[in-house]
Structures are given as structure tokens and as C-alpha cells.
Design a protein around this nucleic acid. Structure first.
Length: 876
RNA sequence: GCCCGCUUGAUGGAAUGGUAGACAUACGGGACUUAAAAUCCCGAGGCCGCGAGGCCGUGCUGGUUCAAGUCCAGCAGCGGGCACCA
């Protein structure tokens, strides 16, 4: 969903193609196409606002049009479709739309490699994938389809950007960015892998550029606090977002700087979360990108070289981990704000981040591991100012002490605990005006400029006199020029001969268009709003429609978007609120993150990967089809082109049908966990479809006009009970996203139906009712088969319009219960008793059992525990 | 390093503290068939026993409880997220 790194490969036919359809077989090819046409002709899934009718907005993360759908899509959209069809049947007014996250890098790569224009490539992919999605039989309202690369879509996001700009939520700033020196472009963090550009493999550099940013930090606290109220989000995602926002309490402290002669060199502000350890300071460290360092470097070639070094390494996590702490001693001294007679040396250091806090820290080696390492390397003093509370002796020279404890060697803080000491020293810093208590966030503003062609143009014009000027609203949308070339690296917009030359809207002098485009995560930050009224031309959406449909009741997608996409969308919603476009805080009421689709991996003796179609299985023996050579079976991993363990959904749908693919996706694995795709599992799902077809069609003729099941007794009553229990259970399972359990219940009900033989009219009525319940219950999962069976039973109307079965409470309880009889907690026997029978009766019946008598051996029990309708435990 | 999650038959997985292994897949046996496929029936956690039956069993070690896969403490393994964030 959204953007992914690579498109899946196309895989050829399954080795185990089902035999041709005979007369007794369910012909899925003909049937699925027919019902898809029926739904479309009837407009079954078209959504329309009906004020007063409860709505339900189901949304799956829309796909990037990479070329073909893959199994991840099939799983995601199947889950969403189950929810959507279920809610429809429950009487909700359901909105279930689909669109395309259509801007992005792969289109430009295709343009470079295949000499095809990004727009052409994208729209062709959309056409292909739309056909594929339609073959899945999803209950989508295609009339609301949206592609983010369409000017009628992105013009609104340009307008919203201008609104944000006016409101101070968008701004330009100089920032250090990841620069790919081969492609001459900025890369997003996620496009930097192990410190190298993902496309070129060139080591990424840090470069200072003026770029557009969105002020997401303005909402940092709100974004964090509101996470607590998202109780239908996975705990894990909320936690990840909270960590990402990274709120920490601390203090900013000013230190006076002097040079070696004692002359004033201004002040230096640092941020710390441990102001309590201020008396343990033994050095100051500045980021190599800090302005003070830049000033000094102008006259110091050696420092310049140091700064250069830091810039080149620096970005990759792997590098950072192994990189040694490096410092460069600056010709400065810092005066301790609370010990006026003491100074500490000042370093530029490679481990201090310019982007966090003030880009400067004080080093307290005694109580910070990084500072400890740095102090040891440069022979700086290591002072202990916190001691273990239990009085244990520690060697502060050997290792930093970072736990809670009691302050020592710290004047007025001595004897206080860490938390108390923090409060006390912040108060003192504020009194003496050398610092303030502050809250710091790890979250940074969202850098949205990209030096790309295939993205939404940023609607700004740069004038030498007026600076950055908004494009006037009447000139929106700013569209992309078609005549561009991709034969050279860099941004085709920037080198286009005419596109960027425009007069300044303010003063009329020649000026230049902004040639950067937006990060594509902007496109996906509000598409769910657009779906509520996609046809509106003069606004991003109709206010009334939006108010009716939003928020999304159930959002479903991959956990890989736990932070970026979901956080950006939460921000965009708030930014819209801020400029008066909407009055909502949160876009997604419920969120579900589905697991990945995995498959075994296969390798030949020479180590090359093999596709599932290149191998052959004989029991435990796995060989290569072409030459019979032995194949090593590897563990199951996420389907990926590079490991060749990809199965093409198109092929599966062609060979087995959409319902089989859907059924298999839902069975066995819990939806949030990874699913292992197996050929045997698909074949099993396919056999079950056939079995259901036989189950119903063999009985249908006999059931026409079957009467009332109310008089059912004995086996017929038991059958009805099974049906109603299944109805209640499946409903609860779907609502709880336990699709695998719902599937198991349906298997059970099918087994029960199979074992039932109707002998009289009442039996036939009970069987008919059971089959109708059963067909309705499988409807959300295997909609084509269910429609066909529904018709087979004689219905002339669509199952998709039929209401969900209501479980009769009277049929959900049995007259008798089977309870376990334990001795000392170990099962000895079971006992069939009337429901809710008296404790004494249960105890008496249990003690009379031969198994129990034998165990007691004539002795009286020590104690008997009776849990009504559950268990009798006899303690001896 | 920090944070989070997971660990149950051959496999995917069920199980409000109350009959562990529902359901499925794979497997074995049988029926049908000239044969196969398909279909149908039966079996199946491990060990002991002819059998009736018994003992053991949810990563490991303890604890709470009449009763623990489930709760608590500690440990191990696997997976995920973040990571010089001061």
C-alpha cells in the first residue's frame, strides 16, 4: 500500500491446476464474472449520504500503482471487504472507496529505464491493477476513484498548502538534508540505506539547503496526548508514535564563552534532560554543524577538515554505531553557570546532533555513557555527582552511573533524589536567569521538498525582490509540463527551458517557479477526506458530506506505515482544522494493521533463488523441475522479487477463483500475524468451495418451499442451534477481526450440515433455515459463491442486499451442559447434567461416578469445588 | 543498548483462570475405481499397556490457586520498532 520499493514479478501457472469444470462442479470463472456484473449493474456498492442513517467508513490503504497487485494487496483488501460487506448487511450506510497513490519515484525510474513518460506508465498501471482488483469481487464504490497525480486532486492540496503557509504552518528553512551526489537530488530518510542512495549506491552526503517544511512540531503535544484516546488503534502503533514524538523534560542552560585570554565570546545555550548533573560537567560539545563551529572553521583549516569528515559519515545508523567518538578542541572556554570561577573546555564533536535541542550539550562523563567514552578518550575529568541510593560503592572512572540515586558533590543539591534535584536546580537556573525548564521533542518538522518531477508542484514563485511569493489562487493548479526528458540525472523541472520562468505575482518582475515538488506522503495525508465527495471542484471536499462520512471507522493497512503516513495524516487533519477547513482532530477512529504474506524460499546448489514454480515436491524431497537437482528449502519470508518467493494473485484467481484466494487469506492465520502462503492451503480452500457448492446444490431441490422450522426437535433443533450459534460467533469474530476463528466456525457448521439428514417437513424447514444462515455468513468472505448458492436456494434478489441473520437467543443455550469432573485438578470423567442444576446435585452426581468412587477408595473427599455448569473438582 | 511482542502436535493455529490441541493443512488406514484423480469414512500429542486404563505434556525454573497455556517473579530463544535524541 502506498509506496513500496519494488513491483512484484509475474509468476507463471500453478503446478497444480484444478481439473476442468465438469457438470457437477462449481464453475467459478463464469459465476464470479456474472455476479460482478450484477453488482455493478445494480449499483449495489455505490454510497450516498443518507442523513440520519448510521454510516460506516471502511478504508484500506490505497495502493501505489506499481504495475500489478500482489498478495499483500489481496490480503489487505479481502479483510476490508469482509468488514464492509458485514457492516452493509448489518444495516450501515457503508462507504468503501478505492484510489491510487499515483505520484512517486518508480514512475521516474521507469521513465529513465524504459523511456516511457511517467504519466503514461502510471495510468497504464492503474488500468491493469483496476482490472485485477475488480476480479477480486470487492464491494467498492468505484465511482469515487481518485488518483493523486490528477490535477483535479492535487490542486486542492496546493490550495491547502497556501492556507497553511499563510497560517504559519508551512515555511522555508535551511536544513541539513541527505544528498545523493550521483543523482543530484535530496533523498528521504527512508531512501537512504546503510548510508547509501538506494538507487545509485553512492554514499550520501549531508548538504545544507533551503527547503519547505510543515510545522508538525506545532502539534507535537496534541499528537502525543490524543494517542491515549485512540482506543481502537493497536497499542503497538500508539507506542511507536509516542516514541517517535519523543517528549522529554529538561532544561536549557546558558554558558558564557570566553577565549583563552578571557575575552567575552558570547553565550552558548545547551539542552539537557539531566540538569541535576550540572555540577558534574567537565566539557561542552557542539555539533559540527553548529554556527559557532562554522564561524571558527572559517579561519581554521583543520577544523574545516573535521567538520567535513563529520558531514560525510554521520547519517547511517550502522555507521553511527561503530563510529568512534571524535572531538575537535575549540579555542574557547565555557564558564560554569553556577560555579563562576570554573571553566570547562569546548569541543566540536561528531556525536552531537544539530537537529535536536540546541545542537550543543554539556558533557557529564560520570552519568552519561557517551560523555564517559568521550572523556576517557580526551583525558577529561570524570566527576561523580550521583551516588547509588543504597550506598553501594561504584567506580565512576570505569563506567558511568546512569541510574537513579542521591546527589553528591553538588552544593545545594546534595542529598536529594534525581527527580527532586532536577526541580530544585531548574528553579535556581530560572531565579538566576541562566536557564529555563523546557520540554523537548524528538519529532522534527516535516521536510516536504523533493527534487523530483513526478510529484505535486509546490505553488510558490521566487522573486529576487519579494522573496518566496504564493502562486495566486486563480492560477491553480500549477501543473507539470509534459515535455520533459529523463536522460540526465537531476530534476527535469529545473532544466526545463520555459516552465519555471514566470513574472512575480507581486511586483511583475521576472521570477522563477519553485521547481521542487511535494513529498508524496502529502498526497496520502488527505485522500480519505477527498473520497467523501470526490467530484467537488472548488473545495477539497463538501463540508456536509465530509462531516457525515468522516472519520474513517475502520482503516486497514500495513504496520510499516505506523509512523510516517499515519502521523502525517493526523497532522494534516489538524492543519486543516487550524485553517478552518474541517473541525475534527483525528482522521482514523479504528486502525488495524495486517501481517505480511510470506512464502517458503528455494535455493539451488549454486545459491541462486528459485521460484515456487521452478521446483517439485515429493514428500520431503524437493528438486528443481528442469534437471532434478536437489533444492534447499529456506524459511518462510515476506514475498519479494529478490528472493523469488512471489506468487501472482492474477494466476491464483485464474486457476482457483477470487473466492478461494479470499477464503485462504482469511483462514488459519490471525489477520495481524504473518500468513504463510502454501500451495496445499490454497488447494484446501478450493476444495472447500467445491464442497459447499455440492452441499447446497444437492439439497436445494428438496427444500423449495420448505415451511416453518419452529416446531423442530431433536436433530433438527440441534442443527438450528448450531446455525444460530455460528451466526452469533461469526458476528463477534468479524467485529473483533478474528477472521480465522470465523472461518473455523463455518467449517464446523458445514460439517454439522453434512451430517444431517432431513426426513420430514420440519427437518427440511430447519435445514433450509440453516443453509440460509450459512450462506449469509460466508457472504462477506466468498461473495460470488454465496450469491450463487443464494440463488440456488431460490432467491431472486441479491444476497448483497440481504440482512445479516439475527441469532435467536433462545437457540444459543442448551438444556444440558457437560461438565468436567476432576480429582485434584486432573480430569477423571465428564458429566451431562441439566443446565443450572443445583450445586448439591452436581456434587452428588460426581461422587457417584465409578471413576470417582475408585479414586476415593471409600475415603471421604477433603473438599469439593463446584463451579456451576463448568466443573466439579474433588480434592482428596 | 532501550522499548514492544511472541514461544501450544509434523504444520498454521483454538482455548471469559475451569475437559489443552477446536478448525484446517500435511500424514496414515479403508471404501469407490481396471487404475489414478476427485469424493466419502476412520485414525492420530508423547510414553507404558493385549486391554481396561495409567503417567507425562503449552520454551525453561520457581510461585499463587481447589484448578495455570492463561496470573506473578526470574531466565532463555525468536521477531519487530527505535537508536549517539544529551
Amino acid at each position: 500500500m502506498l509506496h513500496e520499493r519494488a513491483a512484484p514479478t509475474i509468476v507463471r501457472a500453478m503446478s497444480q491446476t484444478p481439473s476442468p469444470d465438469g457438470p457437477a462442479r462449481y464453475n467459478f470463472r463464469e459465476t464470479e464474472a456474472r455476479w460482478q456484473k450484477s453488482w455493478e449493474a445494480a449499483g449495489t456498492f455505490r454510497a450516498a449520504m443518507i442523513p440520519g442513517k448510521p454510516k460506516y467508513y471502511v478504508l484500506e490503504m490505497f495502493p501505489y500503482p506499481s504495475g500489478r497487485i500482489h498478495m499483500g494487496h489481496v490480503r489487505n483488501y479481502t479483510q476490508g471487504d469482509v468488514v464492509a460487506r458485514y457492516r452493509r448487511a448489518r444495516g450501515y450506510n457503508v462507504l468503501h472507496p478505492m484510489g491510487w497513490d499515483a505520484f512517486g519515484l518508480p514512475a521516474e525510474n521507469a521513465a529513465m529505464e524504459k523511456k516511457v513518460h511517467p504519466a503514461k506508465w502510471t495510468y497504464e498501471n492503474i488500468a491493469t491493477m483496476k482490472t485485477q482488483l475488480k476480479s477480486m469481487g470487492l464491494s467498492l464504490d468505484w465511482s469515487r476513484e481518485v488518483a493523486t497525480c490528477d490535477p483535479s486532486y492535487y490542486r486542492h492540496q496546493q490550495k491547502m498548502f497556501l492556507d497553511f503557509w499563510k497560517a504559519g504552518l508551512a515555511y522555508r528553512k535551511e536544513a541539513w538534508v541527505n544528498w545523493d551526489p550521483v543523482d543530484n537530488t535530496v533523498l528521504a530518510n527512508e531512501q537512504v540505506i546503510d548510508g547509501k542512495g538506494w538507487r545509485t549506491g553512492a554514499p550520501v552526503e549531508r548538504r545544507k539547503l533551503t527547503q519547505w517544511n510543515l510545522r508538525i512540531t506545532h502539534f507535537a503535544d496534541e499528537l502525543l496526548e490524543r494517542l491515549n484516546t485512540l482506543d481502537r488503534w493497536p497499542e503497538k502503533v500508539r507506542l511507536m508514535q509516542a516514541n517517535w514524538i519523543g517528549k522529554s523534560r529538561g532544561a536549557r542552560v546558558n554558558w558564557a564563552l570566553t577565549d583563552a585570554s578571557g575575552a567575552d565570546r558570547g553565550r552558548l545555550e545547551i539542552f539537557t534532560t539531566r540538569p541535576d548533573t550540572l555540577f558534574g560537567a567537565s566539557f561542552m560539545a557542539l555539533s559540527a554543524e553548529h554556527p559557532v563551529v562554522a564561524d571558527l572553521a572559517a579561519a581554521d583549516p583543520a577544523l574545516q577538515r573535521f567538520v567535513e569528515e563529520c558531514r560525510k559519515t554521520g547519517t547511517a545508523a550502522a555507521d553511527l554505531e561503530t563510529a568512534e567518538k571524535q572531538g575537535y578542541k575549540l579555542p574557547l572556554l565555557a564558564r560554569h553557570p553556577l560555579k563562576p570561577n570554573e571553566t570547562v573546555p569546548v569541543f566540536a564533536a561528531n556525536f552531537v546532533l544539530m537537529e535536536y535541542g540546541t545542537g550543543a550539550i554539556f558533557g557529564c562523563p560520570g552519568h552519561d555513557e557517551r560523555d564517559h567514552e568521550f572523556a576517557r578518550k580526551y583525558g577529561l575529568p570524570i566527576l561523580q555527582v550521583v551516588a547509588p541510593a543504597d550506598g553501594a560503592k561504584i567506580d565512576i572512572q570505569a563506567a558511568a552511573f546512569v541510574e537513579d540515586g542521591v546527589l553528591v558533590n553538588s552544593q545545594f543539591l546534595d542529598g536529594l533524589g534525581v527527580e527532586d534535584a532536577k526541580a530544585r536546580i531548574i528553579a535556581r537556573l530560572e531565579e538566576t536567569k541562566v536557564g529555563t525548564g523546557t520540554t523537548q521533542y524528538r519529532l522534527r518538522d516535516w521536510l516536504v521538498s523533493r527534487q523530483r518531477y513526478w510529484g505535486c508542484p509546490i505553488p510558490a514563485i521566487h522573486c529576487d525582490d519579494c522573496g518566496a511569493v504564493p502562486v495566486p489562487e486563480k492560477d491553480l493548479p500549477v501543473t507539470l509540463p509534459d515535455d520533459v526528458t529523463f536522460d540526465r540525472p537531476g530534476n527535469p523541472l529545473d532544466r526545463h527551458p520555459t516552465w519555471k520562468h514566470v513574472p512575480c505575482p507581486k511586483c511583475g518582475k521576472p521570477a522563477r517557479r519553485e521547481t521542487d515538488t511535494f513529498d508524496t506522503f502529502i498526497d496520502s495525508s488527505w485522500y480519505f477526506d477527498r473520497f467523501t465527495s470526490p467530484g467537488v471542484a472548488d473545495a477539497p471536499f463538501d463540508r456536509a458530506e465530509n462531516k457525515y462520512w468522516m472519520p474513517v471507522d475502520q482503516y486497514i493497512g500495513g504496520v510499516e506505515h505506523a509512523i510516517l503516513h499515519l502521523l502525517y495524516s493526523r497532522f494534516w487533519t489538524r492543519a486543516m482544522r487550524e485553517v478552518g477547513l474541517a473541525d475534527r482532530d483525528e482522521p482514523f477512529e479504528g486502525l488495524f494493521t495486517q501481517g505480511m504474506v510470506c512464502h517458503e524460499t528455494y535455493r539451488a546448489a549454486d545459491g541462486t533463488w528459485l521460484t515456487p514454480e521452478e521446483i517439485r515436491r515429493d514428500g520431503d524431497r524437493v528438486t528443481r523441475l528442469s534437471d532434478g537437482a536437489a533444492v534447499t528449502v529456506g524459511r518462510s519470508e515476506k514475498m519479494s522479487k529478490s528472493k523469488k518467493n512471489v506468487v501472482d494473485p492474477d494466476q491464483i484467481i485464474r486457476d482457483y477463483g477470487a473466492d478461494t484466494a479470499r477464503w485462504f487469506m482469511l483462514s488459519d492465520s490471525p489477520p495481524e500475524r504473518d500468513l504463510e502462503w502454501t500451495e496445499a492451503g490454497v488447494a484446501g480452500a478450493w476444495r472447500f468451495q467445491q464442497r459447499l457448492w455440492r452441499l447446497v446444490s444437492a439439497r436445494a431441490a428438496d427444500l423449495a418451499g420448505a415451511g416453518d422450522a419452529a416446531a423442530a426437535t431433536g436433530p433438527a433443533l440441534a442443527l438450528l442451534r448450531a446455525a444460530h450459534r455460528a451466526a452469533a460467533g461469526v458476528s463477534a469474530d468479524i467485529e473483533a477481526f478474528h477472521f480465522n476463528k470465523a472461518v473455523a466456525r463455518l467449517y464446523e457448521l458445514a460439517n454439522t450440515i453434512d451430517g444431517f439428514a432431513a426426513t420430514d417437513a420440519t427437518d427440511r424447514a430447519a435445514l433450509r433455515e440453516t443453509l440460509e444462515v450459512f450462506i449469509t455468513l460466508i457472504g462477506p468472505m466468498t461473495p460470488h459463491l454465496a450469491e450463487e448458492l443464494w440463488r440456488t436456494l431460490g432467491h431472486a434478489t441479491l444476497l448483497a442486499d440481504a440482512p445479516w441473520p439475527k441469532a435467536d437467543p433462545a437457540l444459543l443455550v442448551d438444556d444440558t451442559v457437560r461438565l468436567a469432573v476432576q480429582m485434584n485438578g486432573k480430569l477423571r470423567a465428564t458429566l451431562e447434567l441439566p443446565k443450572d442444576c443445583a450445586r448439591e446435585d452436581a456434587e452428588r452426581a460426581a461422587l457417584a461416578l465409578p471413576e470417582v468412587m475408585r479414586g476415593l477408595d471409600g475415603k471421604p473427599p477433603k473438599r469439593v469445588v463446584v463451579v456451576p455448569n463448568r466443573i466439579v473438582n474433588i480434592v482428596v
